[in-house]
Write a protein that binds this DNA or RNA. Structure first.
Length: 824
DNA sequence: TAAGAGGGTGTCTAGACAGCATGTC
DNA sequence: CTAGACACCCTCTTA
């Protein structure tokens, strides 16, 4: 079937596809067309990765738009949203407009309503429904990418409920679900009332095999000799083999999947020896440039190690990397510059990064709940293997599992090579999932009674596949009790069917996209403040005294570290607001409660919306001590060290809280990484999450009675300190565009303490503090609103520069070079 | 004498969505 | 209860 023979698409699209090289539709695509995908029919396409699933979706969306409709493409990851957007934008020349909406990126809210195709994550779609986005009921086509993720216990229920809601709002909605090959695609199709297209067909052949001893045995019975010398590394040998086998004039790249971050890093280091000896001079130059770019992203050990590996043509990839790191690696791997990537499963589910050869080194992974190593799911291994074979570059792809014995080889064949992927199972009937979705469903008007709620839930995959009718109802009732007890819903038991309504605060929680349990925890913590405040009024100096005393141990701990500069706090409890807590406590009987940033950071860190940091050996003692030293700062009850099982979790949250406090105290990123055993990606993730939760906390505190107005101010300040990563006194400066935590500190040390100072200060001092960077300084002066930002003929004041240099860690980022030059 | 081999012990373990308002060094 | 890689420390061996 030729694309140009398809009817129902915008004029020129078929021809454009042929110009792209799609002369003939792939068999699964043709099957999708036969099933009516361009005629508005719903469809489940369960086909392997890279076999043209996206085109099926495009055919559905474009034909829907051509009929005057509007399409939504749901992705599981933010990174995929931008990838898909870029892909779909090639249809803009045919008059089809594209927009994206994710948590960190929105192509303009107003505009979104006018877009023909919208790309968004499932959580974002859920949030848009909760907030009543007006265009939701204009949708005529929804595509759900990687729909097998409904199996995920954390995020699957969101996708499931979101699809159910979209279909309820819009009964005629064409639903196209793209899935990996799973055991029960037919059940998904039944749920969505859709046609099923199932196929193992791939445009590029995939050979899956197991390596043991001197050869890879493939599933088609063929064998490839890859002898491994005694003492030689099996993985290294296979990577070398792929690189030495030229196709298209170049050796093949490899993707190695391992089971931990540490393994990914050490594997990349080792494989660097293999790749380094096979680089051209040009490769070497470009890799050196890339390594520099990587070092520029963050000055942590992780970043440095990554850059070192990349210089050798090898890289690692895991969630501890900053997102900039990740995309640099992904792009360079796709451009064939990096020859080998050692990755945790991040890469198996993420953006498209195909390789000639995929090596699944570890097939077991630690599982905390189980308390030991568990074999990976068949589906997961298949997804990894599916990354083998680069369209247009490789004649075939190879996926190789590693065995260290003949027995293991047989086991791997049985378990993965021959095995069919597990069936997908809905995880909706679990309390955490229902807690948030029951509230949202009631709050956004999808159900007004218990019966209505249950009948709505009947439209989910869970209902389609369960044989235990009562379970969902039972968990729903438990959840309703919880929501009622916390004042999020009201129940009217008088009528025939129990009436349900969200309270004001329930609506707010739903719209903020908070887990109700997070909201309850936050409210509880903030309310304690009000209580304590009343108590503290009896001893007026109590609050302030505790605050100062509590701050000392932290300063001491930092001072022990020779490399770290402790900045003294100029004033206590001074805020930019005229009626700050200091002023308030002076003329009021209500002493302001001891709300500290640590207290707030700890509060949001112990909500279920924050992912826990792991307590390492020794951490228990360390944080138990912190717990006693800073007891006065914690909001809400402190569980007993000896009696309460929650104490462990509480300490883990304290560790996270301390990390956040360090960040807000301008501790360097590399220092934090070292102190908490995390990567730059983890730090940014934690800061980001806490920022989001504090913003929600601020809204909650404002919306609810009985929370002191001062608390709102404190929450906002704690949040802003996280956002900029600075101490209180730098908040004003860091708010100026182009001024981050480091520049703000340098300016402050040079005597420029505020935005106003920036407008009035001696330009020589400003320039000196910014290490003689004229263009940067001019931009900053302009952004601060200075009348005449020009720095023509101004010489940097070297004393300002000296002060600034002393105040910052040596970071070797070229800025240091500039200031050294200024002295000569 | 020092480097290195070999063995026992202890430690640690994947991932990443949401709001809101605009831009680090 | 179920694992495995690695760092670390100690001891013994060997050039």
């Amino acid at each position: 079937m030729e694309p140009s023979s398809l009817s129902g698409l915008p004029a020129g699209v078929g021809e454009a596809l042929e110009a792209e090289g799609v002369a003939e539709l792939y068999p699964p695509q043709e099957a999708a067309v036969d099933a009516g995908v361009v005629d508005g029919e719903s469809l489940v396409a369960a086909v392997p990765t890279a076999s043209g699933k996206t085109l099926i979706a495009e055919l559905a969306m474009l034909s829907s738009v051509e009929r005057g409709g509007k399409a939504l493409y749901i992705v599981p990851l933010r990174a995929l949203a931008s990838e898909k957007k870029a892909e779909f934008e090639r249809w803009e020349e045919f008059g089809v407009t594209v927009g994206v909406s994710t948590g960190n990126y929105d192509s303009d809210g107003e505009w979104l309503a006018s877009r023909d195709i919208i790309v968004a994550t499932s959580e974002k779609v859920d949030s848009l429904i909760r907030n009543g986005a007006p265009w939701i009921d204009d949708l005529t086509c929804v595509v759900s990418d990687e729909v097998h993720l409904v199996d995920d216990s954390h995020r699957g229920p969101t996708l499931e409920v979101t699809l159910a809601k979209l279909r309820k709002v819009n009964p005629g909605l064409q639903t196209v679900a793209l899935s990996a090959t799973v055991g029960n695609a037919d059940v998904i199709a039944e749920w969505l009332n859709a046609e099923l297209v199932e196929s193992d067909w791939r445009p590029i052949e995939l050979h899956t095999g197991v390596h043991f001893g001197n050869a890879i045995n493939f599933d088609d019975g063929s064998q490839r000799e890859v002898p491994v010398e005694r003492g030689e590394d099996q993985t290294a040998r296979l990577v070398a083999d792929a690189l030495d086998t030229e196709e298209d004039g170049q050796g093949g790249s490899s993707l190695v999947f391992v089971n931990s971050r540490r393994n990914a890093e050490s594997s990349a280091r080792k494989l660097g020896e293999v790749t380094a000896s096979r680089l051209t001079g040009d490769d070497r130059d470009r890799l050196r440039e890339l390594a520099e770019e990587i070092r520029g992203v963050s000055d942590t050990d992780t970043s440095e190690d990554l850059a070192d590996a990349v210089e050798q043509g090898s890289a690692f990839h895991h969630a501890g990397l900053a997102s900039e790191h990740r995309s640099l690696i992904e792009d360079a791997f796709r451009d064939r510059l990096i020859k080998c990537v050692s990755a945790t499963p991040t890469l198996a589910a993420g953006v498209n990064t195909p390789a000639r050869r995929v090596i699944v080194r570890d097939w077991r992974r630690y599982d905390g709940e189980f308390g030991g190593m568990q074999p990976l799911d068949v589906l997961e291994v298949h997804q990894m293997c599916g990354r083998a074979g680069r369209p247009g570059l490789d004649p075939y792809g190879e996926a190789v599992l590693l065995a260290n014995s003949a027995d293991t080889r047989e086991e791997l064949f049985e378990r993965y090579v021959w095995a069919e992927a597990e069936p997908v199972r809905s995880k909706l009937a679990a309390e955490p999932a229902l807690r948030t979705h029951v509230l949202a469903t009631v709050a956004s008007g999808f159900a007004a009674t218990r019966d209505g709620l249950l009948s709505f839930l009947d439209n989910t995959l869970y209902a389609t596949q369960t044989d235990d009718e009562g379970r969902l109802a039972a968990v729903t009732d438990t959840v309703l009790d919880y929501l009622e007890a916390n004042g999020f819903v009201e129940r009217d038991r008088d009528g025939g069917s129990e009436g349900l309504a969200a309270t004001g605060i329930g609506h707010t929680v739903s719209r903020l996209y908070l887990d109700p349990m997070s909201a309850a925890e936050i409210l509880d913590g903030l309310r304690t403040v009000a209580d304590d405040g009343a108590g503290a009024a009896a001893s007026p100096d109590g609050a302030d005294g505790e605050f100062v005393a509590a701050d000392d141990p932290a300063a001491d701990a930092d001072a022990e570290d020779p490399g770290f500069t402790t900045y003294t706090r100029a004033g206590e409890a001074e805020t930019d607001d005229a009626d700050g807590p200091a002023a308030e406590s002076a003329d009021s009987d209500d002493t302001s409660p001891p709300v500290t940033p640590l207290g707030l950071y700890h509060l949001v860190s112990r909500t279920p919306d924050t992912y826990e940091l792991y307590l390492k050996s020794g951490d228990r003692e360390e944080y138990t001590e912190v717990c006693y030293e800073r007891e006065a700062e914690f909001l809400g009850d402190v569980p007993s060290e000896y009696e309460d099982v929650r104490f462990e979790d509480w300490l883990a949250a304290l560790k996270t809280g301390r990390l956040l406090e360090d960040w807000a105290n301008e501790v360097d990123e590399d220092r934090i990484a070292e102190r908490y055993g995390v990567g730059p990606g983890d730090i940014r993730g934690k800061v980001d999450t806490a920022e989001w939760l504090l913003r929600a906390a601020e809204t909650l505190a404002r919306d609810v009675d009985g929370i002191d107005g001062d608390v709102v101010v404190q929450v906002r300040e704690a949040r802003k300190r996280l956002e900029y990563g600075v101490r209180e006194e730098l908040l004003d400066l860091a708010g100026v565009r182009n001024v981050g935590r480091k520049r703000a500190r340098r300016l402050y040390e040079a005597g420029i303490e505020s935005r106003a100072d920036l407008r009035e200060a001696d330009k020589a001092v400003v320039l000196g503090a910014l290490r003689g960077r004229e263009r940067t300084a001019e931009r900053i002066l302009e952004n601060a609103g200075r009348e005449d930002p020009s720095l023509d003929g101004v010489d940097p004041d070297s004393s300002a520069s000296a002060a600034a240099t002393a105040g910052a860690d040596a970071d070797g980022d070229g800025d240091g070079q500039a200031s050294l030059g200024d002295f000569g």
